[in-house]
């Protein structure tokens, strides 16, 4: 080939290795990808030297800069049964479709009364959501004074359901004598770096009122944007 004088014709290039590589990468990303819906708020957690990965099984409260609380459970079936219980407790009806759709949602930050409408809203319209009550995403109510501490109920019921499912799964595994690797659900709190600590304190108070004392505070890895860097 080298002898061939370069004509005006098209040059040939062996693309096989490139295609191989491209497909290898595609396969890798396909297998590692875990799809996640956009969170209702963007929260930029502070960095720390903590190296513990957040366990997959968690009950998470996200607090944004303005102090709004968003609630989420990682386990979809626990989420569904928690919604069923909440629905009866607060007398807010949900259709079966809504409950199923809810299990796929990331965290949410609306009053339970607005939740059916919120679930029915299209994903890209949720940002500007206005509920029937005229309020938008005001965060899950967590007043510690008025008896409208929905967050507390969500945590109590959600955590209860998550633990129940975990226990059931463990028993099931024990019956079948299969190895059981899943971890007990943990309570995660995710806050923006600039969130005022008093908002966090309110949420922590809600947890401790329920006799839950151990938390995983979500942080990003150390490096960039922080004043303190570890040595040694």
């Amino acid at each position: 080939m080298s002898k061939k004088p370069s004509k005006g014709g098209a040059p040939a290039l062996d693309m096989t290795p490139m295609v191989d590589l491209a497909f290898l990468l595609v396969t890798f990303f396909m297998l590692t990808a875990s799809f996640r819906m956009a969170e209702p708020v963007v929260v930029d957690p502070p960095s720390s030297i903590g190296k513990v990965d957040l366990p997959d099984n968690h009950v998470m409260v996200t607090i944004d800069e303005k102090g709004r609380a968003f609630f989420g459970i990682s386990n979809p079936s626990a989420k569904m049964s928690a919604l069923r219980i909440m629905s009866t407790k607060y007398n807010v009806p949900f259709t079966e479709e809504q409950i199923i759709k809810f299990s796929g949602l990331p965290s949410f930050g609306v009053d339970l009364k607005d939740l059916p409408a919120y679930i029915d809203t299209k994903e890209d319209a949720r940002k500007d959501f206005r509920g029937p009550s005229g309020r938008g995403q005001t965060g899950v109510p967590l007043d510690t004074i008025t008896p409208n501490n929905q967050l507390k109920d969500w945590i109590a019921i959600g955590a209860g359901e998550a633990v129940k499912m975990y226990d059931a799964a463990r028993r099931d595994a024990a019956d079948k004598a299969v190895e059981f690797k899943a971890k007990k659900p943990v309570y995660a709190i995710k806050c923006d770096a600039s969130t005022k600590y008093i908002y966090v304190k309110d949420v922590i108070k809600t947890f401790t009122d329920l006799k839950l004392y151990q938390f995983n505070l979500i942080t990003s890895l150390e490096g960039g944007g922080t004043i303190i860097e570890p040595e040694r």
């Binding site: 720390s48 903590g50 513990v52 990965d53 006799k211 004392y213 995983n216 505070l217 942080t219």
Partner: peptide, 16 residues
């Protein structure tokens, strides 16, 4: 779309 790194966390226990 890949979400690579799992969030890191810091374990903290509050006093009862």
């Amino acid at each position: 779309t890949a979400t690579f790194s799992k969030p890191k966390s810091m374990e903290l226990t509050f006093p009862a």
